[in-house]
Amino acid sequence: MESVLALLIGLMVAASVYLMLARNVLRFLFGLVLLSNAANLTIFVSGRLTAAMPPLVPKGMTEPVGVVANALPQALVLTAIVIGFGLFAFALVLVYRGYLALGTLDSDAMRHAEPAPQSGGQKAQAKAEGEAS
């Protein structure tokens, strides 16, 4: 069971990397969601999988009997899902605001904070073109 999930995680990471390599920021975000879910699954699997053995303490006892599922990774995953959801919601709104303010979703076209430098090469080229005409 672990190996199946491990393969699934690998697939998710591969797909997310593919998405995150896109210039479109929205695609990047979807890749990020996929990646964070892959991370959540990793934590879940790393707690070892035990089917149908809930970590419940029988009445009148102070600890569960026999082998039970590990509850800690589930708590961690829950925390991670909540945080991840919050951050994703923020990032989505930010990208939307970015689309409204900058008019593009292409990360290469977002040059407001870092305008393309007027490099010496470009200047020389422009000069050469001017002289040629």
Binding site: V45, P73, L94, G98
Partner: peptide
């Protein structure tokens, strides 16, 4: 700010996910 923010947010989120994966594997 929005322009810089998008780059800051996206790259830092990736690092966060890596940190989380590392924690999961170390715990495992």
């Amino acid at each position: 700010q929005i322009d810089g923010g998008i780059k800051y947010v996206t790259l830092n989120l990736v690092s966060t996910v890596m940190f989380l994966t590392g924690i999961g594997l170390l715990y495992g």
